[in-house]
Write a protein that binds this DNA or RNA. Sequence first.
DNA 1: TCCAGTAAGT
Length: 412
Amino acid sequence: MASSSSALLRRARHLSTAVATAANTNVTTSAAMTISKAKSKLRKEHDTDKALDIYSSVKSNHSSSSPGSTHHAQQITVRRLAKSHRFSDIEALIESHKNDPRITDEQFLSSLIKSYGIAGMFDHALRTYNQMETLKTPRSALSFNALLTACVNSKKFDLAPQLFDEMPAKYGFKPDVYSYGILVRSFCDAGKPELGIEKLKEMNQKGVQASGVIYTPIIHSLYKKGNSTEAERIWDEMVNRGCVVDVAAYNVRLMNAVDGDPEDIKRMIEEMSNAALKPDTISYNYLMTCYCKKGMMNEAKEVYDKLEENCCNPNAATFRTLLYYLCRNERFETGYKVFKHSVAVNKIPDFNTLKYLVGGLAKKSRTKEAKGIIRTMKKKFPPNLLVAWTKLEKELGLASADTEAAKEGVQR
DNA sequence: TCCAGTAAGT
């Protein structure tokens, strides 16, 4: 344990130097890469080291402009590193930002706190928050909200109310509506919506005006616990208080209806439109999923086909759910078309979903299509999944003379 | 994209 952590530390130091030098020299490949291009590359890049390179280039070329966008690139990178458990790399990356002159900007510092939260590194988030005096960063509720968010993202639910009691008094600021919102969400994530409801009352007494956003996780949590009566009571309370009811709030109700009659969901979507709300991809996904669960695959496919007509784009969940149910209903040819669409828009479902499709196509002697999927997947996915694909290929008797290609893939 | 909220098969 001790020796491996010192090895990690060495790597962290190495990385932090690498990041620092990347800022001064143009080591990285594309000096002219735009941030949006970099972000789309980041999303597609499954190799963590390559993702880091892309991020360094964003950082070195655009450190003076569009902070929101670089921040987003930072979060994508951190998420990727956390997925590979490279926490010392994350530390090196984020700590290196503390030398940036923008560290006195509370928003900039808050983005670092949030990134630590995304990685589940709450101790580091808290340390950064407590460093603000040293770093000469002024305090308001903003950085506190970042800390609370980090707390919730790190699933330290007991800590959130404690921070809420301690920090405002310790550092002399007032929690705002957002702070309350994050605290309420923390209670709900911990499966205690009743504490959220209590907080709502407290807000009222203190004259903090609650918005619809604060009600949404409470209603969500109540439905999840099977307490729909109480969920509907809170919904009514939200409406009666004159809160804005938006698409996200409606989607929580749609979620609860997904095991029921599709007609109910259609009615609710209509209700949304009548309220001048535009149902989004999540809304339509519920309708599609509802049809899928009922085995009504033609209707489900129609929802998918009409997404763009409804000004929505299918997302990763759309493809995954539809493909899964198409395969379960032996509709492999339709599934293949859906798969190709998912490749075109870079939202390819995971291995577990696709193995049913490949297996089904192979079973129906659609060897060409089955092989095509495997070829695509070997190109698109990281080396560690290659083993699974090669194994499946062998099991289905689809392996041909391209074992060499597989080797190439491993070396990549 | 902008400080809080929404789902997802076995």
